[in-house]
Design a protein around this nucleic acid. Sequence first.
DNA 1: TTGCCTCTCAAACGTATGTTTCAAACAGGC
DNA 2: GCCTGTTTGAAACATACGTTTGAGAGGCAA
Lengths: 225, 225
Amino acid sequence: MAQSDTVDRILNAAEELFADRGFSETSLRMITSKAKVNLAAVNYHFGSKNALIHAVFARFLTPFSATLEKAFDELESKCGDKPATLDQTLSALTESAIRMPQRNEKGISIFMRLLGLAYTQSQGHLRKFLEQQYGKTFNRFMRLLKEATPQLSAVDRYWRIQFMLGATAFTMSSSDALRGILENKLGVETTVQEIAARLVPFLAAGMQAKDAMLVSTAGDNTSVA
Amino acid sequence: MAQSDTVDRILNAAEELFADRGFSETSLRMITSKAKVNLAAVNYHFGSKNALIHAVFARFLTPFSATLEKAFDELESKCGDKPATLDQTLSALTESAIRMPQRNEKGISIFMRLLGLAYTQSQGHLRKFLEQQYGKTFNRFMRLLKEATPQLSAVDRYWRIQFMLGATAFTMSSSDALRGILENKLGVETTVQEIAARLVPFLAAGMQAKDAMLVSTAGDNTSVA
DNA sequence: TTGCCTCTCAAACGTATGTTTCAAACAGGC
DNA sequence: GCCTGTTTGAAACATACGTTTGAGAGGCAA
């Protein structure tokens, strides 16, 4: 009983503190005092701070990538040999995220912020870990995106995927702060589910925008459907 | 001669290292050794590490916000009492950024990445500094965006602006790396100007996307006007 | 020259970090 | 009971950090 209890308490505390303050700004002493365990417990159970970071991600990402693979399986079998649409592909992603069993009400938002930090904050070891652990699923998602946007040139698709990733990672990485601002300014509360529901149509519209490469400053319209 | 030389070398080194590694991950010793100046020079000339961070931002943002204010002046006088379009507003921004005199070829991309870090990394002091220093210009930009998208609710507009900022900051921040990948994979060269030209229609399409809020996963919807 | 002010330099300071150590407490099988 | 392997605890370790100190170098006016 002692073992798993300590490990979980460390993971819970670390997850929350990392999401709040980033990785380098969170010390092991903050984590262990929040978790009410001894300082040495982290190195005893995980080996190092970096390994703890990996464990925090693995605890969420391993079941999530399994769920996502299943969702992709269903999507592909449902579509037969037709390619899935862009909306279907993006929705498979967001719905898998939302349906994950959550430890508490903040579960998703904490983890979205962590993912954003992982992408933004240049932690070499983390990126390597995520890539070799979950790269396969990520590449499958990219393939689906490609099949869903056959009208785009490879170059256009490449850049627009970067735009999508940017909007997502950036928003999620600061979503707590943004939500706070929104509540103060407009008096509205927003859940992560709602943000995702707003993000998907934004991204889908952007991905399918008509090219306006030749329109420069002086000119006028960019036709958008 | 000694003075300005040291100050500039510190600023140049700090700018590059911050963009590469983030603020907390960059030590004063890294900065001073890259700049080939004494460690104490930072505290002598700037007072503290935080003040150095502010100075790095101010060196770029102060002339940029002046350029931007001028661009907005021209835009508003050109449009008379009609509101400027979304494309015009976004283009005023990107063109002002592109036209800024740059210290070197990496100028823009480095600074875009810094802006992204400032937003993502929870450095309270930085956010306060930027807000009180350049909040006026930022609010003017927000007002233009508001007038350019009267069809959006305040909440929708708020989130979509966050998505735009994310896509922009994220893409620009790593545009050097992304450009390299693109050249290797597809054999195409891309300039920052071309990326901006691709980004603007993507953003404009996203901003003007039809809402799909009622498409929800399981049961409940999230009512937001 | 002398005096003054600005700037540089090497060294040190105090603090916080990740990690290690080793003894004590605890569990379960014999 | 005793023994064995696992887990906790308080303390210390080595290192890196931002910052401060005080001596001295250099330029410039009187």
